[in-house]
Nucleic acid binder design. Structure first.
Lengths: 220, 220
DNA sequence: ACCTGAACACCGTTCAAGT
DNA sequence: ACCTGAACACCGTTCAAGT
């Protein structure tokens, strides 16, 4: 209020955290260098004293999010721990809807590298053959990213038209998709609108893990 | 060359196809309205006579790509046809590396709606229970999108630093990732660099399909 | 009907200047 | 050491004017 008000100097963590909060609350499109600086009470160019460029900023933001992923307890059996880790990742990624899309488009920082290392170690300890462990890592990573992107993308589609009615676009799509031509699509969409189908996230995760174990024991 | 040269007027298909070619060859970041118009020999604003805006253009481009997906033969058994369709989708999406990322962020056009309808119909005819058919649709869609995004993202990471050496960034990452701290990550990456692990795309697809069938028969 | 010049409101980023 | 004014090279998009 008063001009005597002292302002704390900016630092990298403040910039990165403000970036995360901005992307969480207003979407990644609103994450503009100018917007971000405004929210912090500085001018745009001040940001470049603490961050090389926007690309680096996004990388740093992603790594902070990676730190939020809950690790499974050390004494948990490998396959159970993999399952637990996959569920934690989904939880964290869903809390930051802008993340899944960017996750694979940036080089991993330390936290994400540690996350990869943990998942790979669990697969190494799982008793699967090396090649199945390799495939398992990709299959699970894939499942986590794919499902969260699909979830986030669907809610984004649903909310982009009219923020007041999250299902507006779905209804608009239905209006343009005659049931006579696309009966299964219309039926499928109605199942979503009625919300009477729970997520198959864990179900399909288990298909993958069970498939790996089954194939492993049948070939050894 | 001569000023008497007659220029064909622009039309929507020409714009959409030029957009696809530009995104294919120079990446989606190079797909700028100005760039696109330049390539066609027109000024930017001419595009807006044939396309409402860039968002709509991208939607139209995606639907043309959706048309390229090969349909399985009508007489193929449902589960085999699902498998075949998933493989065709991967092929088509991989040919247009900018597509997987945008696929779920745009409302489906007619071709993609037809693609959804076909996959849903195959699941409906597969003998799976309605709820497993619903989950199967998401699991397979997910697998296709997730795997192609991962593939495309990895090659993008690998090529973004130095176009001359596609593995430059991977090696840089290795240099920053000491094997003493991240032994499994380093080993995993070496497996990729040596290219001695084939893709697990079909393997994991079968885990999903087999898991669905197995669960279906055990509960009925 | 289709194309275009000029302009608007944005971007990310640089650089020299201030304290 | 940290912040900022001014500027640059871009974006997508609009609108009135041309043919």
């Amino acid at each position: 209020m008063s001009s005597a008000e002292q302002r704390a100097p900016l630092n990298r963590d403040a910039v990165v955290n403000a970036g995360i909060r901005l992307a969480d609350s207003h979407g990644v499109d609103a994450l503009t260098m100018r917007n971000l600086a405004d929210g912090l009470g500085f001018k745009v160019m001040a940001l470049y004293n603490h961050v090389a460029n926007k690309q680096q900023l996004l990388g740093l933001m992603l790594d902070v999010v990676a730190e939020e992923i809950d690790d499974p307890p050390d004494d948990m059996a490998p396959l159970a721990a993999i399952r637990s880790l996959a569920i934690s990742m989904r939880t964290t990624l869903t809390e930051h809807p802008w993340v899944p899309d960017l996750w694979l488009q940036h080089m991993p920082g330390p936290a994400r590298t540690a996350n990869m290392e943990r998942l790979l170690r669990l697969f190494d300890e799982s008793g699967l053959s090396p090649v199945l462990a390799h495939h398992g890592f990709h299959a699970v990573t894939n499942h986590v990213i794919g499902y969260t992107i699909q979830d986030v993308g669907m809610t984004a589609m649903a909310t982009s038209a009219d923020p007041d009615d999250p299902m507006a676009l779905a209804y608009e799509f239905l209006a343009n998709t005659p049931a006579e031509v696309y009966p299964h699509t219309v039926a499928h969409l109605h199942q979503h609108l009625n919300e009477d189908v729970p997520s198959s996230y864990e179900l399909v995760l288990d298909f993958i893990l069970d498939g790996l174990v089954r194939l492993n024991t049948s070939t050894t």
